[in-house]
């Protein structure tokens, strides 16, 4: 197992979420999801809102991220996320409430011009992503 591991760091402005030797990472890239194994070619991409899966041995950690950057080097991968929460940390009720709020803002956007529809849509995506991550567990 030790042969096939590489170092991964998941860092957000708030804290260092993961800094560990792992087997594989699945990342939501801007142009679609991809998997990183050890020895991956150098790679730099922006990330979109989505699910990050870190596999270490038999253990799988699901993390919901809301965009960021990912730098891949053969020996080391660094994921700089704007926000990141593991499935355990997600508060389902709060995520659900955020989803409803964003949805209602989008629904009202036609009547109320003060609503920023792009922001509301992003908020909705983030909320849905959190709920999805929570449910996958």
């Amino acid at each position: 197992m030790a042969e096939n591991t590489f170092h991964v760091e998941v860092i957000t402005p708030e804290k260092v979420l993961i800094s560990d030797e792992v087997n594989s990472v699945e990342v939501p890239g801007a142009h679609g999801e991809f998997q990183i194994l050890t020895g991956h070619t150098p790679f730099l991409t922006s990330l979109k809102i989505g699910l990050l899966t870190v596999t270490k041995g038999v253990e799988k950690i699901l993390i919901s991220i809301s965009g960021g950057y990912c730098e891949v080097m053969p020996e080391k991968t660094t994921i700089l996320a704007h926000t990141a929460e593991t499935a355990k940390q997600i508060d389902k009720a709060r995520a659900e409430a955020a989803r409803k709020r964003a949805q209602s803002r989008i629904d009202n956007a036609e009547k109320d011009s003060s609503i920023d529809i792009d922001r509301a849509q992003l908020a909705l995506l983030r909320a849905i992503n959190r709920i999805k991550t929570k449910n996958m567990k």
């Binding site: 890239g29 801007a30 142009h31 070619t41 150098p42 790679f43 730099l44 991409t45 922006s46």
Partner: peptide
């Protein structure tokens, strides 16, 4: 010199 792969492309990143 390592050729990074950039997504979407170098300038945008």
């Amino acid at each position: 010199p390592i050729d990074y792969i950039y997504e979407p492309d170098e300038y945008t990143v």
